[in-house]
Amino acid sequence: MPSEKTLPGLDQAAWEELVTRFDGRMWAVARACGLGPADAADAVQGAWLRMVESLDGIRDPERIGAWLITTTRHEAVRLARRSRGERPAADALPEVLVPDPAASVVDAEFGRRLWLRLDGLAEPCRSLLRLYALNPDAKYAQISMRLGLPMGSIGPTRSRCMSRLRALIEEER
């Protein structure tokens, strides 16, 4: 029998520490992919199960956070495609997952800096992003009513506003 290899020192307590550190971020990522609570719960659980099945292969404990966040995003995207009725050719699971470099922004401290930038944006960006960030389950119709924007323009406006916020943050990085 092959010998037991896991990450050095990864016992139940160390695992629970990982959960405490990252499950809130993983949840936020799954929800930011547009999933409702049930699907988001499945995406987060899926990421932990991927970790369980990959334990022998994870060599870089420093990057576990980015790996978990990226894996959550992958599982969330797969679930979102499925609930749109698409049959994912992406039952294709990546054998080796390379963490997204951008995963490091999923952090409360970085989020606080983002809020400062967001509050400096012009309208409608400021209100739109604020509403969208604070109300994860808000529907376009509700946002449209609250802000007096045509429903069809919410999606494009939101992308434009996100790009603006992102440009501000990139200046800073």
Binding site: V106, A108, G111, A133
Partner: peptide
């Protein structure tokens, strides 16, 4: 953009796990 939105929500304590 997905990650930025997640960061905003975490910082606001909106929608905790």
């Amino acid at each position: 953009p997905t990650y930025l939105l997640a960061a905003l929500r975490i910082a606001a304590g909106a929608d905790p796990v």
